[in-house]
């Protein structure tokens, strides 16, 4: 069950990511990124992070990607054209990303034994739910960072409004 869930949604995530890479039109890339984010939400849930699975759906695929789609429609972005500079990016990009993948997977496979397996019923008996655990740490130990993020969001809102505002010609 767990293995089938992992295989299906891992394949879906990889297919979505490859589709993001191969599609020429940004709106197709945006929609395939939504597929990646939704399948990652299922994988979070299978790792016992229910709160993050919900937050992934609401924040990433609900808020951020809708913002992306809005901007793509607002700017009427068409298909990207390839220029001479992008040919060099092909020769640098494909070997570069393969090198990153080889390095990461080498490290992970070497430590594979020590990492062990995923246990679905990992929580000790009588444990609180995931949301209760997270909120207990978030509102006691990490209360100050949590409050500071609200200032960050406020600054981001103000910055977005100032940057996207039409300049007035006097």
């Amino acid at each position: 069950m767990q293995l089938a869930l992992f295989i299906i949604f891992a394949a879906l995530a990889i297919a979505g990511a490859l589709n993001l890479l191969l599609q020429k039109h940004p709106i197709n890339s945006a929609l395939s990124l939504v597929v990646v984010m939704l399948s990652l939400a299922v994988l979070y849930w299978s790792l016992g992070a229910e709160f993050l699975a919900a937050a992934q759906v609401i924040v990433y695929s609900g808020a951020i990607m809708v913002l992306f789609v809005f901007v793509i429609m607002l700017l009427n972005a068409g298909e990207e054209e390839h220029t001479t500079g992008s040919r060099a990016a092909y020769f640098a990009g494909i070997p570069g990303s393969l090198a990153v993948f080889c390095l990461l997977s080498f490290v992970f496979l070497r430590e594979s034994k020590a990492l062990g397996n995923v246990h679905m019923s990992n929580a000790p008996a009588g444990a609180m739910s995931n949301i209760a655990q997270i909120s207990e740490v978030l509102f006691t130990k990490l209360l100050l960072p949590f409050e500071v993020t609200s200032i960050l969001i406020l600054v981001a809102i103000l910055g977005a409004v100032v940057l996207a505002r039409k300049e007035e010609h006097e």
Partner: peptide, 12 residues
């Protein structure tokens, strides 16, 4: 059971 390394490889 799924090894945790499989999740990490997927992330890679």
């Amino acid at each position: 059971e799924v090894p945790i390394a499989a999740y990490l490889i997927l992330a890679a």
